[in-house]
Design a protein around this nucleic acid. Structure first.
Lengths: 221, 221
DNA sequence: AAAAAAGTTAACCGATTGTGTAAATTTCTC
DNA sequence: GAGAAATTTACACAATCGGTTAACTTTTTT
């Protein structure tokens, strides 16, 4: 069926020269990432994506096989390199708390530099796409295993299990990116400006410290 | 254009008898709520919704004017009554902290009993639908005004402003509902079971207390 | 320069989309 | 029971969807 269909964006194989096909595939990827983030997979049309990229719609099939193939590549490219950077940050020397702060800071930085990512992942979550299992096993599971020994702790009398704490911190980290349009209306100020995000990073750091202190020393009952 | 188009579900006007049209409108609403939550507005088709409700697709136009009219009614019905219950919980006598816990507990209960809501709101957020402004001014703004005097506080040296704390708590509260498919894979256990949600409620309560203590007394620098 | 490969284009396909319309049916009113 | 109103049905519409094909142009290879 799909006879040739050479995989594009092959990191420009032998030499560093960028080929013609690579450029159009890259343009399609960028337009698609934005379109899928804004309108979702079902809401974004191949024609619109190609139009935005200034390219013929049929090239989607040529370069990516199908709309779904393009979508997969968008998700992959959005996550590219993150796994290695996160694990490296977790493995770097330092006190456990410093490592955790580094990982969180890196993740916040990644979200801030690629604003489409939270929405892409959130849409994948809402649609319960099978891609999520990869995301879990590739990113979250290794990260959890790398960080868990630092905070191995029995049940806390009030905070409960470590899982609950992780869920809360994860929700708190992602919140401003996901609820931005709502928060702008509620607080009447930009929550994704560079200033706000740096403020946010310090807040998360404090919140993590607060819960870690409570979790590790659990003084109160 | 749309000449007659009587509004259905009029709470059965004079007598308590449920009319034929009300029943089909109700069936459409229920099917639509599920379909919009699962597939999104663009992904859910009028024909599928009507088919699931066992009803002719044209009745969507008759009862709700259009697909978008149906969608609006779905959002309204999902939020119905929540505002009054939340404000009543906030206004009930008791210590400020108890009021906050009541509001949060009520909200968690509402999310738990209507699992479609987090997904519907999240999709509305992702699509930046204008409906969100209503949601803010009808639910969040009044709630914020009702709770704010209890925790009026200057900037905390580490946690930052009250807004940041609210954002984090909000993210933590919603997290298990939104990230459920991901968390099931990650922790290999149900995070939305009745047991897990009660555990979750206690955890959130502790987390709120922890941050409120820090916010109000801000002992550490 | 000829041949092969890679990339691009335009046109078309069947399926599905939301919506509109007019007639048929049911229910209510008198 | 006749007439009016409310509700339901079947059918058609224009538009859009993703996908397919074949011809065309550009680039690379020989």
């Amino acid at each position: 069926m799909d006879s040739h269909l050479h995989n594009p964006l092959s990191a420009s194989g032998t030499d560093g020269r960028e080929e013609r096909g690579d450029r159009t595939a890259q343009a399609l990827l960028e337009s698609a990432r934005s379109a899928f983030a804004v309108h979702g997979f079902a809401g974004a049309s191949v024609r619109d994506i190609a139009g935005d990229a200034g390219v013929n719609p049929s090239l989607v099939r040529y370069h990516f096989g199908s709309k779904e193939g393009l979508y997969r590549r968008v998700l992959d490219s959005a996550m590219e390199g993150l796994r290695e950077r996160l694990l490296a940050a977790a493995a770097q020397p330092g006190a456990p708390r410093q490592r955790i702060h580094r990982v969180i800071g890196l993740y916040l930085e990644h979200l801030a530099s690629q604003r489409d990512i939270p929405r892409l992942i959130q849409r994948a979550l809402l649609n319960r796409e099978p891609y999520l299992r990869e995301l879990v096993s590739n990113y979250l599971q290794p990260l959890l295993q790398a960080l868990k020994p630092f905070i191995a702790t029995p049940l806390h009398p009030r905070l409960g299990s470590l899982e609950d704490v992780i869920i809360s911190m994860f929700g708190a980290i992602i919140a401003p990116f996901l609820y931005e349009p709502l928060l702008v209306d509620l607080f009447d100020r930009d929550v994704l400006s560079e200033r706000a995000l740096e403020k946010r990073r310090r807040h998360i750091e404090a919140l993590v410290d607060l819960t870690l202190d409570e979790l590790l020393h659990h003084p109160g009952a």
